[in-house]
Amino acid sequence: MGEERRQFEETFLPFLDAAYNLARWIVQHDQDAQDIVQEAYLRAFKGFHGFRGGNGRAWLLTIVRNTAYSWIHKHSEDERLVPYEEEKHAKIISFDQSTREMVSEKRKEYLQNALLRLPAEYREIIVLYEFEGLSYKELASALGVPVGTVMSRLSRARRRLQQELSHIRSAEAVNEL
């Protein structure tokens, strides 16, 4: 007793920010995200025996993600969290060229808003890939889908994000007129 917990803490507490960030992006609420992170660490600790080394970060984030979804399932009928519908979300969107000229702070704000407007499935795959650096294979195991689905979902998520960014920016441009 004690030693195993310490080993667990030494391995996984360094990923606390990543865990919180992911939970926060999925549920968009500070206290809920904190509860989820605590619950996820508890689950991870109980399953520590099953952890065979390898990418601890990906392993933990998978648990955070699953915990977040069972938490949502239990607690909320929030509309923003509607299940993913391939048909509805699969529209092809044209690219926008002027993204690179945005100044950084404004860009952050736009990005934040655009990300929040994405369906949860798109948001999480972008956070997990672009931010947490999971590979397609790790994404597939974290999301419980084939690699082919990861490929198409990430691609659509990026286009959708681009679309949201254009919306936000053109709305802003109209306001400034």
Partner: peptide, 19 residues
């Protein structure tokens, strides 16, 4: 540019206490 959320300082000790 991706905005990231840092875990609140108290979260670490809460997680530890739970464990």
């Amino acid at each position: 540019n991706m905005p990231d959320y840092k875990a609140p300082p108290a979260l670490k000790s809460k997680v530890r206490a739970t464990l």
